[in-house]
């Protein structure tokens, strides 16, 4: 039982130094701890150093800057959800953030933690990807930006290198007549990990025809997956039932799920279609209501 060190640096530079100095694999970043502490508790990980990033101002705020909503990586979702700019601009992302765990979990859980934990079932990741969000990473070489779509490389693994951590998420403000939606399936109404998640963003022209769309599924493959075929089925249509149906079929076809106690392969495939259809309809309705 080695002893563990707990540090709570106040600056990005200090955090980078602590992470860089630690032997490879021995340090962990702590945001809300709702994944990290559970993993420590069940013995899956046993870090020698915990770097709590919540005292670093850059990881905390939520504000519009340079045409994007900048969300601090460690900001808890309960606070994020109350930011007026979130719900107004990104109802789908707000929806996804509000789904994580319970009110208690939301008092801690961050979007940064949801992304960096790299679970295939993370609820906000598909929602971030359909919005074209970028991840701002700080490291020994300075900062860099990576699309959220490329951030997760497999279950539990990310593009973060030694000494690096996620500072913030940059979500470009939506174009006119654009909107997003996120739906997930869980057996209960709350307190479950997604069996399937589907995020959709759409842009409509003045006549109601879809000019741009993105569709991303969660929990049906080792990482969240983008389904361009589903988006293609939506683009150029008026998002009528036939187009929605085709998008759903494309979602089913793109799934590469596993059987586990939360759902069977067959079930996940079917539900991916249902949720994609419903999420696309919801996004379309929202977009139509915006000018």
């Amino acid at each position: 039982m080695e002893s563990m060190h707990y540090e709570s640096p106040a600056t990005v530079a200090e955090a980078v130094r602590l992470l860089s100095d630690a032997p490879p694999g021995s340090a962990r970043v702590l945001a809300g701890g709702t994944d990290l502490l559970v993993q420590m508790r069940i013995g899956r990980i046993d870090p020698a150093l915990i770097v709590d990033v919540k005292r670093i101002p850059e990881t905390r705020g939520v504000a519009v800057r340079d045409g994007a909503l900048v969300i601090g990586a460690s900001l808890e979702t309960m606070t994020l959800r109350r930011a007026p700019d979130l719900e107004k601009n990104f109802p789908g992302l707000a929806e996804a953030a509000a789904l994580i765990g319970s009110d208690q979990i939301q008092g801690r859980a961050s979007l940064g933690g949801n992304l960096c934990n790299a679970s295939p079932a993370a609820d906000t990741v598909p929602a971030l990807i359909v919005l074209g969000a970028q991840a701002e990473i700080a490291g020994p070489e300075g900062t860099r930006r990576v699309p959220v779509a490329e951030f997760v490389t497999g279950p539990g693994s990310t593009v973060l290198g030694r000494g690096e951590f996620l500072v913030s998420l940059h979500v470009p403000l939506p174009a006119p007549r654009s909107a997003d939606a996120y739906l997930r399936l869980i057996p209960r109404t709350e307190m479950d990990i997604a069996v399937v998640g589907s995020a959709v963003s759409v842009t409509l022209d003045a006549g109601g025809t879809c000019t741009a769309a993105r569709v991303v599924l969660g929990a049906v493959a080792p990482t969240a997956i983008e389904v361009p075929e589903a988006a293609a089925a939506l683009i150029g249509s008026t998002l009528d039932d036939a187009a929605l149906g085709r998008a759903g079929q494309a979602a089913t076809a793109a799934c590469n799920p596993i059987n586990d106690m939360r759902g069977t392969v067959e079930y996940r495939r079917k539900v991916a279609a249902v949720l994609t259809r419903r999420a696309a309809a919801k996004a379309a309705e929202r977009a139509a209501g915006r000018n």
Binding site: K54, M78, D103
Partner: peptide, 19 residues
């Protein structure tokens, strides 16, 4: 194990005492 931390509801089992 619910408590509040700076007024926010949290699970005290998922907060390090040091935090």
């Amino acid at each position: 194990c619910s408590v509040t931390l700076d007024g926010l509801l949290v699970c005290s089992c998922l907060v390090l005492a040091a935090e």
